[in-house]
Computed example of a mutant assay.
Amino acid sequence: MLPFMFLAAAVIAPGTRFTCTPVAVWDGDGPIWCAEGPKIRLAGIAAREIDESCRPGHPCPQAGGRAARDHLVALLGGARGTRSTGHVIVRGPRLSCVSNGSAKGDRTGALCRAAGVGDLSCAMVRSGYALRWRRYGGDGLCGSERPQD
């Protein structure tokens, strides 16, 4: 099993392709902790916070934060346990990602694909657990549904 560590992650430069082996998830739009070091915030979407709230000015899907997190965890192969911090441990498929730059702090905003799932951001939107968010790359993402401002 891969170790669960909080590595000091640098933000990956926009346009850079990289691989992520998921080891932990916080909520429905990330961060997803990668064994390789990065922390990914899924680009172009917004999910409720884990405390079920929506931050002011963010799109606010109807689905709850815990439900969104659990759906993302399922897309990543299912839960393998929970850390005392609340992070859900996963051992999912390797992700193929493209950075769109900083997602605040040491998180990298990215569009990521998983075998058998496709684009994770789109999978979260299609399932109703997240909304597209224009501010963070939601234009043209996942087809024709209207992105939120």
Rank of each mutant, 00 (worst) to 15 (best):
P14L: 09
P14G: 12
T16K: 15
R17L: 13
C20M: 04
C20H: 03
T21Q: 14
T21M: 01
P22Y: 07
A24I: 08
W26S: 05
W26A: 07
G28P: 01
G30H: 05
P31E: 06
P31H: 03
I32D: 00
C34L: 04
A35V: 04
A35H: 04
G37H: 02
P38R: 10
P38C: 05
L42Y: 06
L42G: 08
A43V: 03
A43S: 09
A43R: 05
G44T: 07
G44A: 06
I45M: 07
A47V: 04
D51W: 07
E52Y: 11
C54L: 10
C54E: 04
H58V: 00
H58R: 15
P59G: 09
C60P: 05
C60W: 07
C60R: 08
P61S: 08
Q62I: 01
A63E: 12
G65F: 12
R66L: 15
A67F: 01
A68G: 12
R69M: 11
D70Q: 07
L72C: 12
V73G: 08
V73Y: 09
A74Q: 13
A74G: 15
L75Y: 12
L75S: 08
L75E: 07
L76T: 00
L76N: 08
L76H: 06
R80P: 00
R83Y: 13
R83V: 06
R83K: 13
R83M: 14
T85S: 15
T85L: 11
T85D: 15
H87Y: 10
V88F: 08
I89C: 01
R91L: 10
R91Q: 14
G92V: 00
R94L: 01
R94P: 10
C97D: 02
C97K: 02
